[in-house]
Amino acid sequence: PREAYIVTIEKGKPGQTVTWYQLRADHPKPDSLISEHPTAQEAMDAKKRYED
């Protein structure tokens, strides 16, 4: 089974940042970016789909 994890990042100019959620996995390479999402819920949904 595949495993993934969610990383929170800040995008934008200082003082005007927006939080994004990255879905990452250690396949095919360590810390590979799988997808980016504007909400934590979307990231969790993507994580479930990826791991299923």
Rank of each mutant, 00 (worst) to 15 (best):
P1Y: 14
P1R: 15
P1W: 13
P1S: 13
R2S: 08
E3T: 15
E3L: 15
A4V: 12
Y5T: 05
I6E: 00
I6Y: 01
I6T: 01
I6C: 02
V7S: 06
V7I: 11
T8Q: 12
T8S: 11
E10L: 14
E10T: 12
E10W: 06
E10M: 11
E10G: 05
K11H: 07
K11P: 02
K11Y: 10
G12H: 06
G12R: 05
G12W: 04
G12F: 04
G12S: 05
G12T: 05
K13L: 14
P14R: 08
P14V: 10
G15I: 03
G15N: 07
Q16I: 07
Q16F: 14
Q16S: 12
T17Q: 11
V18D: 13
T19Q: 07
T19V: 12
T19D: 05
W20A: 04
W20L: 06
W20C: 08
W20V: 09
Y21M: 00
Y21I: 01
Q22F: 02
Q22W: 02
Q22Y: 03
Q22P: 01
Q22V: 04
L23S: 00
L23Y: 01
L23N: 01
L23F: 02
L23Q: 01
R24K: 14
R24L: 09
R24S: 02
R24A: 03
R24P: 02
A25T: 15
A25V: 14
A25R: 11
A25E: 04
A25S: 15
D26P: 13
H27T: 11
H27W: 15
K29M: 14
K29H: 14
P30I: 10
P30S: 07
P30Q: 09
D31I: 03
D31V: 04
D31F: 15
D31C: 15
S32G: 05
L33W: 05
I34G: 00
S35Y: 01
S35M: 01
E36L: 04
E36I: 07
H37A: 01
H37G: 00
P38Q: 13
P38R: 14
P38C: 10
T39K: 03
T39Y: 04
T39R: 04
A40G: 05
A40V: 15
A40W: 15
Q41V: 09
A43Q: 01
A43E: 00
A43Y: 00
A43D: 00
M44E: 14
M44R: 11
D45W: 10
A46S: 04
A46G: 03
K47Q: 08
K47V: 03
K48T: 11
K48R: 12
K48A: 12
R49V: 13
R49T: 08
R49H: 09
Y50I: 05
E51P: 03
D52G: 14
D52S: 15
D52W: 10
